[in-house]
C-alpha cells in the first residue's frame, strides 16, 4: 500500500529555560492510505505532539514529514495554513465549535477558504451533516446540542473539505461511554465507506480497539505496535 504519511527521523524538542526536553526522538513511522491508526501512551509520551506535527500545526526540530506527496516539515506557517485547509480535517476533544454559529455554519467554515460556489458549498455541508446523521439539527447552535451531537458536528466539519487525512485528539475524551461508542463507530464507518486515513490520539484502550493499528509511545519513541482484528463491533463486544 502507498503510505500517505511518511515520518523519518523525526525529532522534536522544546527548551524550557536552560533545560531541553526531547519530546520525540528520531521517530520513524509510515501510515498507509485508508488506515485507522490510534496513538496511545502515557501523558508526556509525545503522542499529541506527533499528531500536531503530522497535521501541520507545529514544525519539527529535525527530520521529515511527508504527507501525500508534500514535505510539510519545511513549510512556512502560512503555507501550512493553506495546506491544512485542503488536506487535513481536525476533531478535537472539546469539539471547539464556535458557540455563536449554527451547526450548518460551523461546518461551512473551512469551505469558505476554498474557491467554491455557494451551491457547491451547500451540497457539501449537507452531505457532511447527513453523513454524521445531523441533517435535522443543522440550524441549532452548539449550546443546544448534546456532547455527542456536538462532536458529530465536529466530525462533519473535519470531513467537509474531503481531506486525505483526519486527525482526532481524544475525540471521545469528553463523552459518556454510549456517545463515545457512537462517535467511534462513525469514525470506523467513515474510514470504511470513504477510505479516509484517520489518526487518533487516545488514552482509552477501549477506544483504541476500534483502530486497525495501535501504536504505543513512551518518552518520544515507539515502543509497541498492535494490529487489531478488523471487527470493531466485535472488539467492542469483547470489551
Amino acid at each position: 500500500m502507498i503510505p500517505i504519511v511518511r515520518v523519518t527521523n523525526l525529532t522534536k524538542s522544546f527548551s524550557r529555560g536552560s533545560e531541553k526536553i526531547q519530546v520525540l526522538d528520531n521517530l520513524v513511522l509510515e501510515v498507509p492510505k485508508g488506515q485507522f491508526l490510534a496513538l496511545m501512551g502515557p501523558s508526556g509520551s509525545g503522542k499529541t505532539t506527533l499528531l500536531n506535527l503530522i497535521a501541520g500545526l507545529d514544525s519539527p526540530t529535525s527530520g521529515s514529514i511527508v504527507v501525500g506527496d508534500q514535505e510539510i516539515g519545511a513549510m512556512s506557517e502560512s503555507q501550512l495554513a493553506r495546506w491544512r485547509t485542503r488536506h487535513v480535517g481536525f476533531i478535537f476533544q472539546f469539539y471547539h465549535l464556535l458557540p455563536v454559529l449554527t451547526a450548518y455554519e460551523n461546518v461551512e467554515l473551512p469551505l469558505l477558504l476554498l474557491p467554491l460556489s455557494a451551491s457547491e458549498r451547500k451540497r457539501q455541508v449537507l452531505t457532511a451533516l447527513d453523513l454524521v446523521g445531523l441533517s435535522d439539527r443543522m440550524s441549532h447552535r452548539p449550546g443546544q446540542l448534546s456532547g455527542g451531537q456536538q462532536q458529530r458536528v465536529g466530525i462533519a466539519r473535519a470531513m467537509v473539505t474531503d481531506p486525505d487525512l483526519i486527525v482526532a485528539d481524544e475525540p471521545t475524551g469528553d463523552l459518556d461511554s454510549k456517545s463515545a461508542e457512537e462517535i467511534l463507530n462513525l469514525l470506523v464507518e467513515l474510514k470504511r465507506s470513504l477510505e479516509k486515513t484517520i489518526i487518533m490520539v487516545t488514552h482509552d484502550p477501549k477506544a483504541a480497539l476500534y483502530a486497525e493499528r495501535v501504536l504505543h509511545l513512551e518518552k518520544g519513541r515507539l515502543v509497541q505496535e498492535v494490529f487489531n482484528p478488523p471487527s470493531p463491533r466485535l472488539a467492542g463486544s469483547i470489551a
Binding site: 502560512s78 495554513a81 481536525f90 471547539h96 465549535l97 464556535l98 467554515l109 477558504l113 466539519r157
Partner: peptide, 13 residues
C-alpha cells in the same frame, strides 16, 4: 481566544 484558535487551525490566516 478558543474561537480564534479553531479558525486558525482550520486554515484562516
Amino acid at each position: 481566544i478558543k474561537d480564534i484558535g479553531v479558525l486558525r487551525i482550520l486554515g484562516y490566516s
